[in-house]
């Protein structure tokens, strides 16, 4: 039998979703092939990198990720602006750490005020990421949706337990939602269906399959993403044809290995570049699994990941 390039025939495609508004809007998704498989379809929009900004000063970050932002860690707007102006962030992901009910428990009003400041400082789409405390996230994200009417923020994570409140607010005030579920095809589908039944326009939904860190559960997320894409494209399941987002930097930089100093781990090499490469290799893995938006932390990891995307899609 002689060589013949076996090509997939797809019966579905990923929806295009427009994030942000006006001149700042960015489109993601639209794939008609598996990730980077341009020999049998198209990836009309490059995967995008959103840079991670916290609404309060992080106290446990590795030195490598504090350094580039050391003078703006207290000022989310300035921090976000730096990510866009200096590091070429396609979007900003504001993590509302201060609202964690097990920690500072900041109020929805305080959070909304921060969001407005950040919005005013940047000209790229803004993702708002809660603390995965469903009830608190619902209160906070509803408030933000209302205060930032028409901005097409990207609000999440939205789970089955809080989809009604956040979904309704997103619909009413013109935002996009992040449909989130713990590494499971059926659960992902279920939240999407709940949102659809609520009346959420399906071109305003992106999916968070849950992200595991490199060496800390990445393989589970990787496989569920491959399965989600197969269901969407090979089986044509229209309840799963959404762009995917991964909160990667948060998971990777939480690991011990990104924090060890040179003398604590001499064989793990340069501590700064180790973290950067762990984040970048994690990014490549998630890109190969179908990520459309990667939330990342270190500017150098962002730069290299973008360079990789350009090589893969050139």
């Amino acid at each position: 039998m002689a060589f013949e390039f076996y090509k997939e025939s797809y019966s579905g495609a990923v929806k295009e979703v427009s994030l942000g508004k006006g001149d700042n809007a960015v489109t993601v998704g639209g794939e008609t092939c598996y990730p980077f498989y341009q020999f049998e379809g198209e990836m009309p929009h490059k995967p995008k990198i959103a840079m991670e900004v916290w609404d309060m000063k992080p106290d446990e970050w590795a030195e490598a990720v504090l350094k580039p932002f050391e003078d703006v860690l207290d000022d989310p707007a300035a921090w976000a602006k730096r990510c866009v102006d200096e590091y070429g962030a396609d979007m900003i992901a504001l993590e509302l750490r201060s609202t964690d009910p097990n920690d500072k428990d900041a109020s929805p009003e305080e959070a909304a005020a921060t969001v407005k400041k950040v919005l005013a400082a940047i000209n790229v789409p803004l993702i708002i990421w809660g603390t995965a405390s469903p009830q608190k996230d619902e209160e906070v994200l509803k408030k933000i949706a209302e205060e930032c009417q028409g901005e097409n923020l990207i609000l999440g994570p939205v789970e089955d337990s809080n989809h009604k409140g956040i979904g309704a607010a997103a619909m009413g005030f013109g935002h996009t939602v992040i449909s989130s579920s713990p590494i499971d095809v059926n659960l992902a589908k279920q939240v999407n269906i709940l949102l659809e039944n609520l009346g959420m326009p399906m071109e305003r939904v992106i999916v968070d399959p849950t992200t595991g860190g490199l060496g800390y559960g990445m393989e589970y997320s990787y496989s569920v993403m491959e399965r989600l894409r197969m269901a969407a494209m090979a089986q044509g399941d229209d309840k799963l044809q959404f762009p995917m987002i991964n909160n990667l930097g948060f998971e990777v930089w939480k690991s011990k290995e990104t924090k060890l100093k040179a003398d604590e781990a001499p064989t793990l090499g340069d501590p700064e570049r180790r973290g950067i490469l762990m984040e970048s290799v994690g990014a490549v893995s998630y890109l190969m699994a179908g990520s459309d938006v990667l939330i990342m932390r270190h500017p150098e990891a962002v730069r290299m990941t973008k360079a990789f995307i350009d090589l893969g899609l050139s």
Partner: peptide, 16 residues
């Protein structure tokens, strides 16, 4: 090979 370059790849390989 440097520690910082091979370690992330070994982790990815372990996962995959």
């Amino acid at each position: 090979f440097t520690g910082e370059s091979i370690f992330p790849l070994l982790l990815e390989r372990l996962n995959i």
